[in-house]
Design a protein around this nucleic acid. Structure first.
Ligand SMILES: Nc1nc2c(ncn2[C@H]2C[C@H](O)[C@@H](COP(=O)(O)OP(=O)(O)OP(=O)(O)O)O2)c(=O)[nH]1
Ligand SMILES: [Mg+2]
Ligand SMILES: [Mg+2]
Ligand SMILES: [Zn+2]
Length: 579
DNA sequence: GCCGTTTTCGGCCCGACTGTTTTCAGTCG
């Protein structure tokens, strides 16, 4: 992952936050925040972009491009340093405490000299906030609790875990009398890799009762806000859950609103305004007093009335999907149903939990046409791996299995090769050539310099036996960061050598991640969406990989494991330059 | 500060809940 993008985005966000605290034109702060978002979502490395290329990015203009250059050249931004000198870092940290925003943080800093979370706690305990204008006993109480929960509430959880909790909460919600429909929305529905909170939507004609009953569900710890249309609660595990309740006939517009993203919503609502309409969670309205409701029941109806196609939820990040939907030009994204097989999995020959046969049967039960077993090569010494004899034995086993399962599924004999320090692989070329499919992946020494890491990966991509680059950046959520790679160079090489980039579907990896998949798709790369299953159950992780691919706008035609076996075999058999 | 199917100037999404407030600002979704 190009670390510089994250650093530049962080600087722009900090600039926006500090400008907001400082006061002044709020649209200027909005502009810096949007620019920061744009940089974060950029697959390309900002450090390699010219000022003209930067300015061409939506949301980045001359001023911001200049500041980015300033940061990259001198290591800092003058305006940001001025603001940092004016407000200690703790003031920014304070605005992240729930219930504290820029205005109150500024008041605390100016009136009481509070400049850190510790000082805030002291001031609270000494009762010094009480006689401050705009602060009272309740605020004091809420802030003390928010401070205590601060570190826990800041965390984002992984997509896979979030989905589990959401389904449990939805089950509870659906048992509440009067709930006609319920769905999850927010970043979970958009399939982001990490989830800040759960957003649940319910349709009912008795909202008050539903909100009340929701607060009493067994998994709910504390209710932090509650009104006639919504509630915010914390689960016993400390996860925030936002419930929104609407009338059944508003379910579509409410789902559109609550699914987001915020940037997507703003863009769609601006379009509604240009049409002389108003869009909110209650519907699309027209007329001098907005008394005419044009659409609300379904998302399709709402988008349709706006003259748009309905973008799949994972696309709704304001990366250009609104413009395409208006022109009726949305790409048709890959779906789970398009997939004909899984091209990375493990058996007891390496660190998998089941035999090749058990894995193959499970894959067949999923309705797949083909399935690759890809155990680890011998250079990955930390786990059981394939000796030369193992390879022969496993090949025979696969051959027998293909006779036994003929007509049900075709098993491909694959390998997950380990990319060494010099980009070298586990076996001599003739051994590698004996596999039906070779996935090459980084597994160790992931913290090298960008140039060295990129060189290793490029060498592997250039190897004639390699078909797929597995979990390209090696990240492991939530802690192990991505290797520092020049992703543009990786994509270029993959394209040139006909190597597919894996989108690893395991929720701890999701690698390529969404932004990189978006870049790779733009560059015309091929993909393989693979579960990397170590047990039959893990074959079900595919949906997370597909969601990530959709976030990168990946189409089925560019995903090799949507291809019929015949076409896939041609891809696997061809020499790299023909692929 | 950014941007353009109406714009190179003049807009920039829209609504809910809380607390402290005599009418709304701040924060959040
Ligand atoms: N129109 C509009 N909608 C918003 C705004 N803020 C949030 N929303 C909508 C879109 C969001 O996806 C949805 C849920 O809000 P969240 O704060 O939970 O964000 P989201 O779930 O996208 O990300 P998260 O992973 O929770 O941080 O509510 C806003 O300022 N305006
Ligand atoms: Mg959310
Ligand atoms: Mg939320
Ligand atoms: Zn691996």
């Amino acid at each position: 992952m190009p670390r510089t993008n994250l650093e530049v985005a962080a600087a722009l966000h900090e600039l926006a936050d500090l400008l907001e605290i400082n006061g002044g034109d709020r649209f200027r702060t909005l502009a810096y925040r949007r620019a920061g978002d744009a940089v974060r979502g950029l697959g390309r490395d900002v450090a390699t972009m010219t000022e003209a290329e930067l300015t061409a990015v939506h949301g980045i203009g001359r001023a911001t491009a200049g500041k980015v250059q300033e940061l990259l050249v001198s290591g800092s931004i003058g305006l940001l340093e001025q603001l940092r000198a004016k407000y200690p870092a703790g003031v920014l940290e304070m605005t992240r405490v729930s219930g504290l925003g820029p205005k109150k943080a500024l008041a605390l800093h100016d009136a009481l000299g509070v400049g850190s979370l510790e000082e805030l706690e002291e001031a609270l305990k000494a009762g010094r906030l009480r006689d401050l204008k705009g602060f009272g006993a309740r605020t004091e109480e809420n802030l003390l609790r928010a401070l205590a929960n601060h570190s826990r509430e800041e965390r984002r959880i992984l997509l896979g875990e979030a989905l589990g909790v959401a389904e449990e909460m939805l089950d509870g919600l659906r048992t509440i009398p009067g709930v006609e429909r319920a769905s999850y929305a927010g970043s979970l529905r958009r399939m982001r890799d990490t989830i800040g909170d759960l957003d649940l939507l319910a349709a009912t004609s008795c909202p008050g009762e539903v909100v009340e009953a929701f607060g009493g569900l067994p998994n709910v710890g504390r209710v932090s806000a509650k009104g006639p249309t919504k509630a915010s609660v914390l689960t016993r595990g400390g996860l925030q859950v936002d419930l929104r309740v609407v009338a059944p006939e508003e379910f579509g517009s409410a789902l559109q609103y609550f699914t987001g993203s915020k940037a997507h919503n703003v863009k769609v609502r601006e379009h509604a305004v240009r049409m002389g309409c108003k869009l909110s969670e209650y519907g699309l309205f027209r007329g001098p007093l907005w008394e005419q409701r044009i659409a609300a029941a379904t998302e399709e109806e709402v988008y349709g009335a706006l003259g748009m196609q309905t973008p799949p939820a994972p696309m709704r990040e304001d990366r250009g999907e609104v413009e395409l939907a208006l022109r009726g030009a949305l790409p048709s994204l890959v779906t789970v149903r398009d997939l004909r097989g899984d091209l990375q999995s493990h058996s007891v020959y390496s660190d998998g939990r089941r035999t090749v046969r058990e894995m193959a049967l499970a894959a067949a039960a999923k309705g797949y046409e083909y399935f690759a077993i890809t155990d680890h090569g011998r250079n990955l010494s930390v786990v059981r791996n394939l000796s030369l004899e193992d390879i022969e034995r496993q090949r025979a086993e696969v051959r027998a299995l293909n006779e036994e399962l003929a007509g049900r599924i075709v098993v491909l004999h694959g390998l997950e090769a380990n990319i060494g320090m010099e980009g070298d692989l586990d076996y001599p070329d003739e051994v590698l050539a004996g596999f039906d499919v070779v996935v090459a992946s980084l597994h160790h020494q992931l913290r090298g310099e960008r140039e060295a890491m990129t060189r290793r990966v490029l060498r592997a991509i250039e190897h004639p036996a390699v078909h797929i680059l597995g979990h390209p950046t090696g990240r492991m959520l939530p802690r192990r960061p991505a290797s520092d790679l020049d992703m543009e160079a990786v994509c270029r090489a993959a394209l040139a050598h006909g190597v597919a980039l894996e989108i690893n579907a395991n929720p701890r990896r999701l690698d390529l991640k969404d932004d990189h998949a978006f870049l790779a798709r733009q560059m015309g790369c091929l993909f393989a969406i693979s579960t990397d299953a170590h047990s039959p159950r893990e074959l079900d992780l595919m949906r997370f990989g597909v969601g990530t691919a959709q976030r990168g706008w990946v189409e089925a035609k560019d995903v090799v494991n949507t291809w019929p076996l015949e076409k896939l075999r041609r891809f696997l058999a061809k020499s790299p330059l023909e692929r």
